[in-house]
Design a binder for these strands. Structure first.
Length: 272
DNA sequence: ATAATCACCTGCTCGC
DNA sequence: TGCGAGCAGGTGATTA
């Protein structure tokens, strides 16, 4: 489920129930995730949650003892459940909260993670976060930045913008969409795209992510009781998942290829 | 250094 | 109906 808009929506959805609550118990049923859940994670017990932050697709939970860092991987989800709700297959971690709720982590593919950063180390310096590129919705990210970073690169522009060291949050769906909206063919070498075209691309990356975050707020607002499964606003996608179907702008059949092992869809007429 | 590929893991869909 | 192949929203490690 999680691209950046889904992670942001998750963060916003759970924050009201987490902030100010005490973590009474941490239950780890399956520690073998992307990285093993360390025993030190138990230091969360008894801690008051000071607040939540998102950096890239990571959700940071701050306490006086340290910071817990969630990553949802490809199939992870976090939601609040009532204490009497039975656990299901792949419900790997629970946080029992002082307000009676349980924060429950579910992740069939186990590509996600729960990391522990002891107090005293700034999370920006964490080995998992230090190398990350700018946030796409920040002022640090714009067309000039993409232009400068891409000079001399022969890599396809799509894999370039999906590289978290360049910019975070441009996952496969939104990279496909932003490239369509910017009229740029995903296979074009990153180093051969003009400044002006990168300015358009950066704007569309911002726009498509912001719009999805806005929708996420309405589509999966209910993190208590609901099943927490978001949609991808499929009705609004121009290219992702639409290979072989007609372009919504010009009706030409959309082309689907694989780029860096990821499904890539574009319009040969609208994207040059 | 750069760019492409592999690997982690389960579940679902598709074609035979 | 069953079964293998291929694919899925991420990203660090490994290979050319």
């Amino acid at each position: 489920m999680p691209e950046l808009p889904e992670v942001e929506t998750t963060k916003r959805g759970i924050e009201p129930w987490l902030k100010g609550a005490t973590i009474e118990q941490v239950v780890v049923r399956q520690p073998q995730l992307r990285w093993p859940v360390v025993n030190e994670i138990q230091q969360l017990q008894g801690q008051v949650i000071q607040g939540l932050q998102r950096r890239a697709k990571y959700i940071l939970v701050a306490t006086d003892a340290g910071t817990a860092i969630w990553h949802l991987g490809m199939s992870g989800s976090l939601r609040l459940v009532e204490p009497n709700e039975d656990t299901r297959l792949h419900d790997h971690i629970d946080w029992q909260l002082s307000n009676g709720k349980i924060l429950r982590y579910h992740d069939p593919r186990r590509f996600g993670a729960l990391l522990w950063l002891p107090a005293g180390q700034a999370w920006q310096d964490s080995e998992y976060l230090a190398h990350l590129g700018p946030e796409p919705l920040s002022d640090a990210f714009d067309g000039d930045y993409l232009y400068q970073r891409s000079r001399g690169k022969k890599q396809a522009v799509k894999t370039f913008v999906m590289d978290g060291k360049v910019v975070v949050g441009a996952g496969n769906i939104y990279a496909n969409e932003a490239l369509f909206l910017a009229g740029i063919r995903p296979t074009t070498a990153a180093g051969r795209i003009s400044r002006v075209r990168y300015q358009r691309l950066a704007e569309h990356i911002k726009q498509v992510l912001a719009a999805a975050i806005e929708q996420g707020g309405t589509t999966l607002r209910d993190f208590v009781g609901g099943d927490g499964q978001p949609g991808y606003f499929a009705q609004q996608l121009y290219v992702y998942g639409r290979g072989g179907k007609p372009c919504r702008q010009c009706s030409q059949t959309l082309t689907e290829i694989r780029l860096g092992q990821r499904s890539t869809v574009y319009c040969q007429s609208c994207q040059r």
